[in-house]
Design a protein around this nucleic acid. Structure first.
Length: 267
DNA sequence: TAGCCACATCGTCAACCTAG
DNA sequence: CTAGGTTGACGATGTGGCTA
């Protein structure tokens, strides 16, 4: 688990007496002491009761940033195409070089000048690579086009199950397709029958299943994005640790030098 | 080569947060 | 108040390194 593996150099005050390791021990102790056959019933429910959520890493970083100047706040993520993660670019540390997850190098000079350099064009920017989640074993009917429409920009759009839109380019001899997140549905388009129009229990069940699958898919994507952000956050912290270590070393050396100057040896 | 272990990744659940 | 987004926690699975 990430929190276990990346035991970083700071701990949130709230977290101090409630670390994950302690929790695991606590849970394990309970599991051990409960020797009845019901111990299996304890399972995740009891475990979850014990495991209260830690403050999110964003919150931790934002709280730290309010206490310590120089620690960046994690703000609303801008799109990946913009390249420079805001949480890195806003760091006010002297002459530091960072590499972002997108491969860009960010140099922050002493005067606060920020330089961004691309190591090379390593892919198509601005076009999100998507993978079809139903490519392996598609559920029955998953590939059925639900609706097709001509959008305002002249492209042909097909709404497929799973809140995605397959867009066919309007120009060119060879038809090209893109999978996009639908920005806005054309007026009058209803993705599925509204609950009011459902009659039979079977229809209601299907609607519930559809909603659940949609929610799971969204959450799946959200979890991926969340993990990506967290990795970036860890990288940012690691960069900062490296910078501060160098700074610390320099200050110690400076202190030693000053000590030598102020108290010359008398032998 | 099989078995084991540590670690990484992913999907899911559920608690929490926030915009509307 | 509610719907939807965020993220900690958990369990399952994959992978690479090590050892017998």
């Amino acid at each position: 688990m990430w929190w276990h593996q990346h035991n970083l150099c700071f701990r949130h005050p709230i977290e101090e007496d409630y670390s994950s390791g302690d929790l695991d021990k606590k849970v394990a102790t309970i599991a051990e002491t409960d020797d009845s056959a019901d111990s299996e019933v304890i399972d995740s429910h009891k475990r979850r009761e014990i495991l209260s959520r830690r403050p999110s890493y964003r919150k931790i970083l934002n709280e730290l940033s309010s206490d310590v100047p120089g620690i960046p706040k994690i703000e609303e993520e801008k799109s990946e195409e913009e390249g420079t993660p805001p949480n890195i670019a806003t760091m006010a540390v002297p002459t530091s070089i960072y590499q972002t997850s997108t491969g860009q190098y960010i140099a922050i000079a002493q005067g606060g000048t920020i330089q961004i350099s691309n190591p090379g064009t390593d892919g198509v920017q601005g076009l999100q690579a998507l993978t079809m989640t139903n490519s392996g074993a598609p559920p029955p009917g998953a590939t059925i086009v639900q609706y097709a429409a001509q959008s305002a920009d002249g492209t042909q759009q097909f709404f497929v199950p799973g809140s995605q839109v397959v867009v066919q380019a309007a120009t060119g001899d060879m038809p090209t397709y893109q999978i996009r997140a639908p920005t806005a549905l054309p007026q009058g388009v209803v993705m599925a029958a509204s609950p009011g129009s459902l009659h039979s229990p079977q229809q209601l069940a299907e609607e519930a299943t559809r909603k659940r699958e949609l929610r799971l898919m969204k959450n799946r994507e959200a979890a991926k994005e969340c993990r990506r952000r967290k990795k970036e956050y860890v990288k940012c912290l690691e960069s900062r640790v490296a910078v501060l270590e160098v700074q610390n070393k320099k200050l110690i050396e400076e202190l030693e030098t000053l000590k030598d100057i102020c108290s010359p040896k008398t032998d």
